[in-house]
């Protein structure tokens, strides 16, 4: 009896979970295993492994310039974007949270850029705001101070292209993280502040530092991790903002795109690159789980 009930449950279980697991196997497990095999083979213009080359693809990816440069590019990008996103989205959330009048309006205004794609935002940044000729908005503003127009996205010295790259992502993602902080701010019990005021604290920096920030700890950790992981996968704005023949700033995914889908169509090295990036992000995830103490299986 119990045995047949268990078998019945097995059938029902797979009725629900089967389609998903089949898809996951075909579109996630199989590609990764296939790529693992390809990464040890020469596979140019073909997705079937030809000559076994051992760790050559890995050695080439890690030694030759472009891929390693792209990891440096990611690091520089993360050093700008992570603290700026954190500070600005927290600032917006605190201010919007304090508003009594028109709060919903301002929340919507800061949130609505999330509707925009990176492609459209890059187009506005490249063709209008940071257009290198005289009619670009930034150059119009500089013109008011009699400053010469700046070729924002073409020149490498000084590396001013970071300004459009960083601001476009800030514009697109600040509202999203602001919503996360707002949700957390609403969870802080008001009695905490009242108790502090009774003890003589004045509203402002002191209560922010000693009540608000500690109460936001788990959201803050989540925001930092999410922005780092998102920066690691940056592709869209780098691809669309900077002319593809200019080697100014190429992220890891952009380099992989060039290797696997550019002229070389080198799936062997492309696969090796994908394996390296996957391994790095798994290591970071495990490390952060250890450091923050939530490495145990989520349940």
């Amino acid at each position: 009896m119990a045995r047949s009930a268990a078998r019945g449950h097995a059938w029902t279980f797979w009725l629900f979970v089967g389609p998903f697991m089949a898809g996951l196997a075909l579109f996630v497990y199989v590609p990764i295993l296939w790529s693992l095999v390809l990464s040890f083979h020469e596979a140019q213009n073909t997705v079937t492994p030809t000559v076994f080359v051992g760790f050559d693809n890995y050695r080439q990816m890690l030694s030759d310039g472009p891929f390693r440069e792209s990891l440096v590019t990611f690091t520089i990008f993360a050093l700008f974007i992570v603290p700026l996103t954190f500070a600005c989205s927290l600032g917006l959330a605190v201010v919007v949270h304090r508003l009594r009048f028109a709060r919903a309006f301002f929340r919507s205004v800061f949130f609505i850029p999330t509707a925009c794609s990176y492609v459209v935002a890059s187009l506005i940044w490249r063709m209008s705001i940071f257009n290198g000729v005289r009619f670009g908005l930034a150059n119009v503003l500089l013109g008011l101070f009699d400053h010469e127009p700046i070729a924002w996205l073409i020149q490498s010295d000084p590396p001013l292209y970071w300004i459009p790259i960083v601001t476009v992502r800030l514009w697109l993602q600040l509202g999203f993280y602001m919503i996360l902080f707002l949700a957390a701010l609403q969870q802080i019990p008001g009695e905490l502040y009242e108790a502090a005021y009774i003890d003589g604290a004045s509203p402002g920096w002191t209560t922010f530092r000693h009540i608000t920030l500690p109460q936001l700890r788990s959201t803050s950790v989540a925001v930092v991790l999410l922005t780092i992981i998102a920066a690691y996968q940056a592709f869209d704005e780098f691809y669309n903002l900077i002319h593809k023949d200019l080697n100014l700033a190429r992220t890891p995914l952009l380099q992989l795109y060039n290797i696997a889908l550019g002229n070389q169509q080198d799936y062997g090295r492309g696969s090796a690159g994908a394996m390296i990036l996957s391994l790095l992000i798994v290591l970071v995830t495990l490390l952060q789980g250890k450091l923050l103490g939530f490495g145990k299986p989520a349940d």
Binding site: P31, A260, I281
Partner: peptide
């Protein structure tokens, strides 16, 4: 599978 973002493995997925 949650540990690896799908964008990172776009080359393997494209191969398949």
């Amino acid at each position: 599978t949650l540990m690896i973002p799908s964008a990172v493995t776009f080359v393997p997925s494209f191969v398949l």
